[in-house]
Design a protein around this nucleic acid. Sequence first.
DNA 1: TAGATTGTTAATCGATTAACAATC
DNA 2: TAGATTGTTAATCGATTAACAATC
Lengths: 218, 218
Amino acid sequence: MSEATVGRLPVYLRALVELAGRDVASVSSSRLAEHVGVNPATLRRDLSSLGITGTRGIGYDVKYLLFEISVVLGVNQEWRVAVVGTGNLGRALANYQGLATRGFPIKVLFDVDPDLVGTEIGGLPVRHVDRLPELVPKLGVTVGVIATSVEAAQGVADQLVEAGVTSILNFTAESLHVPEHVVVRRVDLATELQILSFYQRRDTAVSGGAGVPLSGED
Amino acid sequence: MSEATVGRLPVYLRALVELAGRDVASVSSSRLAEHVGVNPATLRRDLSSLGITGTRGIGYDVKYLLFEISVVLGVNQEWRVAVVGTGNLGRALANYQGLATRGFPIKVLFDVDPDLVGTEIGGLPVRHVDRLPELVPKLGVTVGVIATSVEAAQGVADQLVEAGVTSILNFTAESLHVPEHVVVRRVDLATELQILSFYQRRDTAVSGGAGVPLSGED
DNA sequence: TAGATTGTTAATCGATTAACAATC
DNA sequence: TAGATTGTTAATCGATTAACAATC
């Protein structure tokens, strides 16, 4: 199954949740595809590659589709999350309800800052990162979210991996090096904006030259 | 130039900033490529497609490369940002210094909640979203960040577009519909985690049987 | 049966990369 | 000149999608 397919599954899932909520019983590939903005053939191929079948002449059963995709994505499973770094972003994540409701309950927060350690965010106490090796296995955490400074990111990743974490969501700009069996995804807000603005630049007439800016970065 | 190329530019940029910081004067495609984890031929093709040239037998001049990529990405330009929705995520964004330092200063915050309107976050007052049509053009905002509820997202997008915003970073799970000239990127944290956990499921022995998942693999 | 829609083949498109002539 | 490395051609790989036979 292609990486692109995997990326589309959550999108399909969301559309299906909505359809199920409206008590729509079945849906054609063209209707669903239009809803999520992909080509109908692509959608059918995606489903077919998951072994999910519809009914010719009819379409796909919404509930069945919803269930199957949920299973593939492991939505019914619980993935316990540790958030490392409780600056603004970490704090936002800790307070974000959307994670727990989608099967990613945050079980523990870590920081190095003595002013933060011991405080509570979203009902969870912030632990010192020194306790990471102890608490991560104990709490059954398998997903780590890194919301630290760029400088600390690789060290934290190493510790998480050492403690048994196998999935890492990296919010720093650092490219993390991890063993084969660990999966990393990076979400860098400034990078997203840079890409966004690149596409804008093509259209917009651009003002003049400003010298070399990036001496120091984030 | 391919979309994939654009996505790699910020990564190149970061590596170059580091090299420049270490006073490295020139770098070969193979060295830089290894540093960022891409194929050297891909890197050379990327640069070549931007009209950036190196010197045969020598490599690329780091400062020149840094400058050129900065120009392409518009890093020297200022992109004024409006954040709509000042819940936890919006609040985190408003406090996040990384955006302003990379050329994306947040100029205004919006919310509908009367309890939030009038409060200050990161030194900026929260405005009522009713004032969006007035304030966005006035402040020269061209980038909108949507950190509202899923339900409000499309309406906010419409308002932003109407007010002149041409780039939208969407933090909700909603697939936004916008006119051709508007660029949207979506960052959905739960989606990222779902994708992450999907890849983990493949390796991990999975508990409780729930139906046949991946009858067809590859 | 007639109409609709799947599942998949085959064509197409686009991106990656090995390989190498050009050239510093 | 000898060694190194670019810039690009051509091969390859993989993903998308039009098209249509299968079939509900």
